[in-house]
Design a protein around this nucleic acid. Structure first.
Lengths: 143, 143
DNA sequence: CTTGCTGCAAACAGTTTGCAGAACT
DNA sequence: AGTTCTGCAAACTGTTTGCAGCAAG
């Protein structure tokens, strides 16, 4: 699964004529070792600890490439930071975001996915991707 | 409908001990006269044309109040600007966003709404609100 | 050796904040 | 009169960009 992702990026890089660099390898490794909607800053710090001398800008630029290559996806929650999550082929999950403790639960629902396609078709839309977030109080915070 | 909204804000203001000011009235009027996901900047310019001397900061501060009072809702698309849309009681619509021409089509689907509630219930979540955006190409841009 | 990639710092854009004066109650 | 609200400008935050040097092909 990690290897697949690396291959995915290599293929993308090859098709775009991008060069293979140490930084991109490191950033990909660290990104693949994370879970759950990591922010650019968080990733940057993680990288820096094991690999100082990788700049902010490179992390931003590289994450954009990951998103473009299809292995990551940009998500915007309401905290003013751009976050990235892994794209898992053939799977799409959405988010339940707790407005009290900021925890995030993922879920997937095939029926919703299907309805989305129907709606898009009804409006002549060709779906590229979508996102859904439900905000509320998680079970812990309701107590 | 516009009157309802004004009342809604007045009630909120009263309950919070907020003062009634010319600026807030103007901003509410202009906001209520708009449609479709207006950005703070757009709203600010609209206000300024008929009512110079209303500051950026006040528009930001006031829109936050509108959101808090329940008559507006903050939405984040992928263009780096915070936008606000009207909250219509008992109705929730979602967005089809064209990634080519940036047009936005609203839609509503009761089945999806119901599924969301089921999902939230299954995870012990108490829904406050949610949003769903489908990105893709609109019928015009597909041609 | 050519061109793309990187790190740095400066630039940017959107948003927030501190403060003195104005306005509401 | 007392306190909230406002406008302004400055500060902030996250992100992007220009550029000289470095490194991959």
């Amino acid at each position: 699964m990690i290897l697949e992702k690396k291959k995915m990026f290599n293929d993308f890089a090859a098709s775009k004529g991008l060069r293979s660099t140490r930084q991109r390898d490191v950033i990909l490794d660290v990104f693949l070792s994370t879970h759950q909607h990591i922010s650019v800053e968080e990733l940057y710090l993680k990288i820096k600890s094991s690999n100082p001398g990788v700049g902010h800008a490179t992390v931003y630029r590289t994450l954009k490439l990951f998103a473009e290559s299809g292995l990551a996806r940009e998500i915007l929650l309401h905290d003013g930071q751009t976050r990235y999550e892994h794209v898992i082929a053939g799977e799409h999950h959405d988010h339940l975001v707790c407005t009290s403790c900021n925890s995030i639960v993922e879920f997937e629902d095939a029926t919703i996915e299907k309805l989305q396609e129907e709606i898009a078709a009804r409006h002549g839309f060709q779906i590229k991707n979508h996102k859904m977030e439900i905000y509320g109080l998680c079970s812990n915070c309701r107590k």
